[in-house]
C-alpha cells in the first residue's frame, strides 16, 4: 500500500438509523470511509449491511442521520436528501447488487454503454443532436465504446463483448457488474457481496481487480462481503455490524481479534464479552 494515498474521509455516515415500522434495521450507525481506501462492512446475516448500502445509494430514505459525501473540490453532498439517480449521477456513487442486476437481454457492451447514459445523453444534446447524427455525438459514442473496451479488458471479457449479458457464466456476470459500475466514473464504489458464489481462483482475481481499481482510479470502495479471504486480504478498514449496530471498527488485524466480533460470529455467553 502506497503511503501517498489520501486518507481524508470521502464518506461520513453519522447517527444513521433506519426503521421499517417497528423493526430497527440500522441503529445509530456512524462510520467513515477513506477517499482511496477499501472499507468493508461485515456482520452476520440480517445485520443491516445491505440496508446501509440502500441508504447510501438513495434506494431507502433513512429515518434519522446524515450521510455526507465530499468531493475533491470540497463540494459536499448530503445523500439522505437526494434521489437515487441524482446520487449516482452527481454525487458519483456507483453500486452493484447482491443478486446480480445486469440487463440480461442486452449485450455486454450495451450494459457498459447504458452505464455512460448521462455522458452520452449530454453529448447527444438530449437526443436532438444525436437524432440528426451530428459529429459531436459520434465522437462521444466512440469514446464511450473505448471506455467500455478498457473495462472489458480489465475483466477479461473483451471476447464476449457482443454476447448477451445473461449468457455469461456467474463469475463473469459479477465482474461485469463491477465494470458497469466503473464505467460511470464513480468516486465511491459500493459492492454488495461481490465474491458471493465465486470459486477461490475467481475470488483471488476479484481481490486483484479491486486493488487495481483502488490504486489506479484512486477511488473509495465500500464492500459488503462474507468471504473473509477477500475482506481480510484487501480491506484497509472494517466496520462490523450486528443487529444494526456497529460493534467494532478498525484494521483487519484489530477486528480479527476483537472479542465483540468473535462473540457476534460464533455466539458466546453474554458475561464473557463484558
Amino acid at each position: 500500500m502506497s503511503a501517498a494515498r489520501d486518507k481524508t474521509p470521502i464518506l461520513n455516515v453519522q447517527h444513521l438509523t433506519m426503521q421499517f415500522g417497528g423493526l430497527v434495521a440500522i441503529n445509530d450507525l456512524s462510520f467513515t470511509a477513506g477517499r482511496t481506501d477499501i472499507t468493508a462492512l461485515i456482520g452476520p446475516n440480517g445485520a443491516g449491511k445491505t440496508t446501509v448500502f440502500n441508504c447510501i445509494t438513495g434506494f431507502y430514505k433513512p429515518t434519522e442521520g446524515m450521510i455526507a459525501l465530499t468531493h475533491d473540490d470540497g463540494h459536499r453532498f448530503l445523500l439522505e436528501r437526494l434521489d437515487d439517480h441524482v446520487i449516482a449521477r452527481s454525487a458519483r456513487v456507483a453500486r452493484t447488487f447482491q443478486n446480480i442486476r445486469l440487463f440480461g437481454g442486452m449485450t455486454v457492451l450495451e450494459n457498459l454503454m447504458v452505464a455512460q447514459h448521462n455522458t452520452l445523453m449530454h453529448a447527444s444534446r438530449f437526443t436532438f443532436a444525436g437524432l440528426l447524427g451530428l459529429s459531436g455525438f459520434k465522437k462521444a459514442e466512440k469514446e464511450a465504446v473505448e471506455r467500455a473496451t478498457h473495462w472489458l479488458d480489465k475483466i477479461q471479457l473483451v471476447e464476449r463483448a457482443d454476447d448477451p449479458a445473461a449468457d455469461l457464466p456467474y463469475g463473469a456476470q459479477r465482474r461485469l457488474e463491477i465494470a458497469r459500475a466503473m464505467c460511470m466514473n464513480p468516486l465511491l464504489l459500493c459492492l454488495d457481496e461481490p465474491a458471493a458464489g465465486l470459486n477461490p481462483k475467481e475470488s483471488d482475481q476479484l481481490n486483484q481487480l479491486l486493488l487495481d481499481i483502488r490504486d489506479e482510479e484512486q477511488i473509495a470502495i465500500l464492500l459488503i462481503e462474507h468471504d473473509m479471504s477477500v475482506v481480510m486480504g484487501i480491506s484497509d478498514h472494517i466496520a462490523v455490524l450486528d443487529y444494526g449496530r456497529k460493534i467494532s471498527y478498525g484494521t483487519p488485524e484489530f477486528v480479527r481479534s476483537d472479542p465483540h466480533v468473535i462473540a457476534a460470529y460464533l455466539g458466546v455467553e453474554d458475561e464473557e464479552v463484558a
Binding site: 439517480h85 442486476r101 440480461g104
Partner: peptide, 14 residues
C-alpha cells in the same frame, strides 16, 4: 430498453 430489463439497475446507474 435498460428500463425494460431492470428498472432498479437503471436508477443505480444515474
Amino acid at each position: 430498453e435498460a428500463l425494460r430489463e431492470d428498472e432498479i439497475a437503471c436508477r443505480s446507474l444515474g
